[in-house]
Write a protein that binds this DNA or RNA. Structure first.
Lengths: 227, 227
DNA sequence: ATTCTGTCTTCTGTATACAAAATTCTGTAT
DNA sequence: ATACAGAATTTTGTATACAGAAGACAGAAT
């Protein structure tokens, strides 16, 4: 994951060296705390207490919380502060349904817009992921898996798509990681990735779209029982 | 548009009287100012000056800006404050490509999940819109048009889909309104809406999905020259 | 015993003040 | 005249202080 908060200004300011602002640091930190479950769903975000814990004052913390609220990671109740959003089973299913369509679109666009170098980069990640699979390194496998999906969406060259996909993927991060699928399901997922890679390299748009859709549809059955 | 910031707590708190917080007021106000062009793309958001203009202090204003930044309406450059996001031609095209897929998905889900009452409500709006078309009331037509699309997404009963669609529709609001299409294009759009309505009432999922997709694809040709 | 009410505490909402960074302006040197 | 350097000003970033709700608790009344 590249992190949602851009470190370099998107485009306008050439290649500005952006020393991460405290704001970005806090946003990323809070996001991690939520995603990794350090802040459990439903937890109230006490401004003073949390501020002390992070060693910052309330003002930037509040701003970061507002940012995350717009991201959908926390609920903002007017007089009562913020709390970590709870995800129901249905929420997860709904998110997967949307991300599925986004990836299908991304796959189609990637076949058209990707550069050969871009595809090659994904191939490298894919091969690394395979070696993690063979050595049963779940954590690295998982990270590369996410990175591959993100990279594919990047190849689509559609900023809106990339942003929305990234946001959803982030929110699903915690859920997906829980899904400790058995060996046969894992093997199936890997096979799907093989097919994805082949379709991308062949720039076979319908095939890539289809396999991405299938992959995401299967994702639900993989995590279903753990939600 | 129903406004992205919920005035009533989503569900949990029964019918809570939610006196809109200053935060929400500012967010909505700024959003309107941006959408209606009062704050032109590229405009720097001077905190002091803007705060005086709105009669508020910097703190809640900054929080609101952070919120909108996460929404993608403003760019946040670390040491240099915020500015209204510029939309390039490509940005608009990309956004339309994404919203197209979202509406296709929404259409499919709506055919399955919608209640008969829900469909009836859309029918009412549709008929109202037709009468606006006949009386050439562009503004009302446009508003109802948006409301219909939003309502359809609501019928899909997928919160993530609704939120993402709403966000994109909001960002496209200004662009779309500019598109003063000629009579023949307008007629075509109305015909598409007729078909959409028929497909929805027949709960013909593939047909609704297809016509929604076509409608959005045409939307680009309608606004293309004005971006 | 229970419920209502009033007070007290705690937390959020907002404003202001101070510090640091960035931009602009000005003066000087080439 | 132009370019560079340095100071002054403006603007953002952060902290703190105060005000106003919301929630908790205790006491009184039924």
């Amino acid at each position: 994951m590249d992190g949602m908060t851009p470190v370099l200004s998107p485009n306008g300011g050439a290649d500005r060296i952006a020393r991460p602002s405290l704001h970005d640091l806090i946003v990323d930190r809070l996001r991690d705390m939520i995603i990794e479950g350090e802040l459990a769903p439903g937890t109230r975000l006490h401004e003073v207490q949390l501020g002390e814990r992070l060693g910052i004052s309330r003002t930037p913390l509040r701003e970061a919380i507002k940012y995350l609220a717009s991201d959908g990671l926390v609920d903002l109740v007017p007089g009562r502060g913020a709390s970590v959003k709870r995800l129901s089973r249905k929420d997860v299913r709904d998110m997967l349904a949307v991300i599925q369509r986004l990836e299908e679109l991304g796959g189609e666009l990637a076949c058209v817009n990707a550069s050969d170098e871009g595809i090659a980069r994904v191939r490298v990640m894919h091969d690394e992921m395979l070696s993690c699979y063979r050595s049963k390194n779940r954590l690295e496998y998982y990270k590369l898996n996410q990175a591959i999906h993100s990279a594919m969406m990047e190849l689509a060259d559609n900023e809106t798509l990339r942003a929305m996909h990234g946001r959803l993927q982030m929110r699903l991060k915690r859920i997906r990681f829980i899904g400790h699928e058995g060996p046969e399901r894992w093997a199936a997922a890997v096979a799907e990735h093989e097919e994805m890679m082949a379709a991308l390299e062949a720039r076979d748009s319908p095939r890539l779209s289809a396999i991405l859709g299938l992959h995401l549809a299967n994702a639900w059955t993989r995590v279903e029982e753990y939600v």
